[in-house]
Amino acid sequence: MAPSPRKPRVPRVGPSGPPQSREEDYEASFDQAPSDQLPPVRGGAGESSVGRSSGGRVSVGRSAKVTVLHPVDDGADEPDEDQPLRSNPAREQPTKAHRAPSKGSHSLSPARLLGRRTPDAGSAAGGSRDVLAFPVPRAKRIRRRVVLVAVALVAVVAAVMGLVLFTPVLAVHTITVEGTKMLAPAQVQEALAPLKGKPLPLVGPSDVSRLVAPIVQVKSVQSRAVPPNTLLVTVVERVPVALVKQTDGFSVVDGDGVQIATAKDQSAYPVPVIDPQGAHMSHDTFLAVTSVLSALPQDVLGQLATASAQSVDSVQLKLSNGQTVVWGNTQDRDLKAKVLEALMKSAQNPPQGQAPVNVFDVSTPWHPVTR
Rank of each mutant, 00 (worst) to 15 (best):
P194I: 06
G278N: 09
T67R: 12
E237N: 06
A133R: 14
S267M: 06
V271R: 02
T180Q: 04
P356K: 14
G204F: 06
R116H: 11
K196P: 09
P19G: 11
P137R: 09
G104A: 09
D120W: 04
S16Y: 07
S282C: 06
A45R: 14
L132W: 07
P227Q: 10
A305T: 03
Q303K: 15
G56V: 02
L153S: 01
M344H: 04
G257A: 07
L231H: 13
P297S: 05
T290A: 05
Y269G: 01
A307G: 12
S206T: 09
L69Y: 10
Q352R: 15
G17R: 03
P199C: 06
A305E: 14
V10M: 11
A124I: 03
A186G: 08
P79K: 03
Q331L: 14
R6Q: 04
S314T: 15
P356Y: 03
L293Y: 04
Q352D: 14
D31C: 10
E24Y: 13
V72Q: 07
T285G: 07
L108F: 15
V325Q: 05
A213C: 00
G44Y: 07
D299A: 11
S209G: 05
L287N: 12
Q310Y: 13
G353R: 02
R62G: 10
Q354F: 05
Q259V: 15
Q266N: 15
Q83F: 12
H283C: 04
V239D: 07
A279G: 08
R143P: 01
S282T: 15
V273H: 06
V312I: 15
V221I: 12
L148R: 08
G61V: 01
D275K: 02
S4M: 13
L170P: 00
P40L: 11
I274E: 08
A155M: 00
A305S: 13
E190D: 03
S128C: 12
K336F: 03
P297V: 02
L153H: 00
V221Y: 07
Y26S: 09
A2W: 10
Q189G: 10
P272H: 04
V154T: 01
D254H: 04
V312G: 14
A2P: 15
A263T: 07
G122K: 05
A150Y: 01
V151D: 01
R22V: 12
V154W: 00
V147T: 12
S87P: 02
D130L: 15
R141S: 09
E78V: 13
L113A: 13
P272V: 02
F166D: 02
A295R: 10
E78F: 08
G104D: 14
K219L: 10
Q20K: 11
K198M: 06
V315K: 06
